[in-house]
C-alpha cells in the first residue's frame, strides 16, 4: 500500500538571496507501507532535506507530496504537527535528546503533544516503548549517563512511543561504532519486520544500507537510482 508519494519535489533554501541553495531538484519517490529504504549519497546531496520534507518538518518549495493520499502542502501548521506527532517518528545522528532529562521523560515528550493520550497513560506507554528497545533497566537514568548506543535506543523508543507508521532515521548510526551500529540496525530491522513499520534511513554506511530492502542514491538533490 502506497504511503508516501513525492512528485517533482523541489526544495530551495533561502530563495532569491545570495545564499540560495537548491537542495532538492525534482525528486520523484514512492514508498509503500512496510518498506525499509536506505537513502545514500555524498554529503550535501540532500538526504536530510528529503527526510525533513517527508517528515513534515520542513515544507517543499515546489511539487506535490501525498501522504496517505492527502496533499501535505494543503495542511495547516496544526495538521503538520499532528503528522509529526502520530505518523512519523524521528531518529537523528546526534540523538536529539533533552540531556537534562531522564530516559523516561524524553520518551514521554511526543505523548505530551497528543491530546488523545490521557495523562495517566503517558508513563506506562513510555515504559512499554523503552522495554521494546531493551532499556527497561534504564528508565529513570539521566540520558547523560547513557552510552551512545543506549541514547540512540532512547531516541528510537521516543520515535516509537506514539505508534507511528514511519520511522525517519537521519544517519542513526553516524555517531556509533561498528558493533553498536549493528545493534541499532538489528533493532530497526526487527521493528520493520515485526511491526510492519516503514523505515527510511539516510546513511553513508554501505553496511547499513545492505540491511535495507531498497536503496536510493541521491546526488545534487536528484535521485539517481532506486526511484
Amino acid at each position: 500500500m502506497e504511503l508516501i508519494r513525492l512528485q517533482e519535489v523541489h526544495k530551495v533554501y533561502n530563495p532569491n538571496t545570495p545564499g540560495e541553495v537548491h537542495a532538492l531538484q525534482g525528486v520523484d519517490l514512492t514508498v509503500d507501507q512496510g518498506e525499509m529504504v536506505a537513502i545514500m549519497g555524498p554529503s550535501g546531496s540532500g538526504k536530510s532535506t528529503l527526510l525533513h520534507v517527508i517528515g513534515c518538518l520542513d515544507q517543499l518549495t515546489e511539487g506535490t507530496y501525498l501522504l496517505d493520499g492527502l496533499p501535505v502542502q494543503e495542511m495547516s501548521q496544526k495538521q503538520l504537527a499532528q503528522q509529526r506527532n502520530r505518523t512519523f517518528g524521528f531518529v537523528l545522528q546526534d540523538f536529539g535528546l533533552i540531556l537534562s532529562k531522564t530516559a523516561l521523560e524524553n520518551v514521554v515528550v511526543p505523548l505530551v503533544f497528543d491530546p488523545q493520550v490521557p495523562s495517566n497513560e503517558m508513563h506506562s506507554r513510555a515504559r512499554a516503548a523503552l522495554a521494546l528497545v531493551g532499556l527497561q533497566e534504564k528508565i529513570q537514568t539521566s540520558v547523560t549517563q547513557l552510552s551512545g548506543g543506549q541514547k540512540q535506543r532512547v531516541a528510537i523508543a521516543r520515535a516509537l512511543v506514539n505508534s507511528p507508521k514511519v520511522i525517519l532515521a537521519d544517519e542513526p548510526t553516524g555517531a556509533l561504532d561498528q558493533g553498536t551500529s549493528q545493534e541499532i540496525m538489528d533493532l530497526l530491522v526487527r521493528l520493520n519486520q515485526e511491526q510492519n513499520l516503514t523505515v527510511l534511513i539516510s546513511t553513508h554506511d554501505a553496511q547499513v544500507a545492505s540491511r535495507c530492502t531498497r536503496v536510493i542514491q541521491l546526488q545534487d538533490g536528484k535521485i539517481l537510482q532506486g526511484q
Binding site: Q77, I98, R158
Partner: peptide, 19 residues
C-alpha cells in the same frame, strides 16, 4: 540555547510553535 534546543525537540515530536 537550552530553550531553543528543547523547543526544537518539541517541534520534532509534534509541537506547533504555539505549543
Amino acid at each position: 540555547m537550552e530553550k531553543e534546543k528543547q523547543f526544537a525537540v518539541f517541534f520534532l515530536c509534534g509541537a506547533t510553535t504555539k505549543d
